[in-house]
Design a protein around this nucleic acid. Structure first.
Lengths: 335, 335
DNA sequence: AACGACGCTGTAAGCGCTTACATAACACGA
DNA sequence: TCGTGTTATGTAAGCGCTTACAGCGTCGTT
């Protein structure tokens, strides 16, 4: 049912062989100008459109890269995808996206489904149990991890230094005079969340404060819920570090509802620097992970791997570590 | 360089013909249990992964649908994509995304590049000059338009009733007591924006008010800029209808900065109901277009077209019109 | 005038897979 | 015992494209 006019039809219509037709259409130089014109004219008249799968099969090159994400919901992923898209356009690549993979198994399944349809893979799989992932994923395909894998670090990747970022967040709150700093954590099985939690705990230890960790799942609802817990306590914290911006946002909402003043009563800081932090009131301090850039740079890295050779090359590729940058906004600025 | 172990290798390793190997792997019932086991064992040992392009070529079925968007930036598109993704997962389809198409030409180019790699196309092309699009796009591929085309409406599509929505927005502001209602318009060449503008103009006429239209481009920056213009006037409007939520958001920001009270001094309403409207302060009234649903339902429609038969069927498919729903939040509620 | 070099064109062999069709094996009833 | 139906397996023909290689005029040389 797909484009039913084939190169063969064009060739016939133009009165040349299929080989010449192919050459003419692909702009090779070894065809007479006259033949080229005839072929292009025929192609135009017949509305010929090359068949991607056939071309891919013949050339074993798809000009497409697969993107595997745990989710595609929210600004964080939107930014990632945008970064990837921008990079892809620059390299003339298409992207095949697959989101919503709750665990390693699904991610692997998605990756398998992409085999033969992509030239390389960009994978984000922040699962704690991902040791087996690296064994199952690479079917000779160039691969770049976004955000690190569970087990080994032998895959080329772009990872955010979550630990340092969290540490910095805590130090910042401490400097602003906070003495009771709580943390809304991300999903327990999430590697990034784990690192941010570690950073928080070490930060509190460094400051000689006692920690309070509330569970969360990276959604605004979790931030809101966490705040309800805090409000029910006899003593509220005076500083709050949320493992990501969405939770910080939810917390802000809950606190505003309860009439708690930000940052005077409680200073808040998130993580990631998604666009919406700027529109919150007050605007939310955060650690800028450069989400967009992670997407774009991952793609560039992958693209380079694909050009350079292939799978083996990827083993040699260095992993890039992105150090997040503290962005202080009104939610934590006490002057 | 792609997955280099082929079905042939597996067949040999299992000591069967390639046909049997194919059957075993695809779970057809006409293979002995013993053969199936041998094949699966071999496939596992060799880490065989089927080659997507080859399969697609042989079956002329890709289980992938192409998505062509003018942009993939921001919550609006994020929501659309999410809706599509959810629908796609439900139908076992993959999605090939292409964003950032400034005009019809690019959109057509993207669509061509997808031919032979997808079973159908989901296209959003809100360009005013899109008359020629419908002539160039469908290369026998099932196609669903999201948001309407310029010229003809003979393509199956899911369109938002922008005109009615805008009319409703204006009526709402009028009911809240606004008498000087300004409009921040979307891009001039954008069809949706044009309809919203028409609705606004007719609404004002209906109310016997005189219109003021400020240019915009759907970005928060444009909303902010528009507000600066308004602030410079001798008399501010007391109502503001932005052609989309992002501009409403930008306007809110600008007004808050200037110390203008919302909704008392000026009531604001946007369009689309993207998630961030809820987090703004005050939360922004809007017209809920059900962006997520548009994505999901478009995909379902397309999926049905693909199953049902193909291109011809699409001619018969009705276009669905989505009527936006007024969502009143604090930014326009004067009680 | 004959010969190689050169450039355009066509033929055909795949790319990895599915699948119609042929074949073979076997069980059954007559 | 033979024919027939049934089922598992193999053979081979594509799907639409690219591309190595062969073919064949043309032209410049000697």
């Amino acid at each position: 049912m797909a484009a039913s006019v084939t190169l063969n039809d064009v060739a016939k219509a133009a009165g040349v062989s299929i080989a010449s037709a192919s050459r003419a259409i692909n702009g090779l130089d070894n065809v007479t100008e006259e033949v080229r014109e005839r072929v292009l004219a025929a192609a135009g008249k017949l509305k010929y459109v090359p068949h991607g799968a056939a071309r891919a099969l013949a050339m074993s090159r798809t000009n497409t890269i697969g993107v595997i994400l745990p989710d595609i919901y929210g600004e964080f992923f939107s930014e990632i995808i945008r970064g990837i898209d921008v990079g892809a356009r620059a390299s003339g690549l298409h992207i095949l996206v697959s989101g919503s993979h709750g665990d390693v198994k699904e991610a692997v399944k998605a990756a398998r489904a992409m085999a033969g349809r992509v030239d390389g893979l960009l994978v984000m799989a922040p699962y704690a149990d991902a040791d087996d992932l690296s064994g199952k994923l690479p079917f000779n395909l160039p691969l770049v991890m976004m955000g690190g894998v569970g087990g080994q670090a032998d895959l080329p990747s772009l990872v955010v230094d979550n630990y340092s970022g969290a540490l910095e967040a805590v130090r910042h709150l401490h400097e602003q005079g906070c003495r009771r700093i709580a943390h809304i954590a991300g999903p327990e099985s999430n590697l990034e969340a784990q690192d941010r939690l570690r950073g928080y705990l070490d930060g509190l230890k460094e400051a000689g404060l006692s920690p309070q960790v509330l569970p969360g799942d990276f959604t605004d609802g979790a931030g809101y819920a966490a705040v309800q817990t805090l409000l029910a306590q006899e003593q509220m914290p005076d500083g709050l570090f949320a493992a990501n911006d969405m939770m910080a946002l939810g917390a802000t909402l809950g606190l505003r509802e309860a009439g708690v003043s930000i940052p005077d009563d409680i200073a808040i800081i998130g993580f990631d620097d998604i666009p919406v932090t700027r529109y919150a009131s007050p605007p939310i301090s955060t650690l800028r992970a450069g989400v967009f850039d992670i997407g774009r740079r991952s793609l560039e890295l992958l693209s380079a791997l694909i050009e350079r050779g292939s799978a083996e090359a990827s083993a040699s590729a260095a992993s890039l570590i992105v150090r997040p940058e503290l962005v202080v906004r009104a939610s934590s600025r006490r002057r």
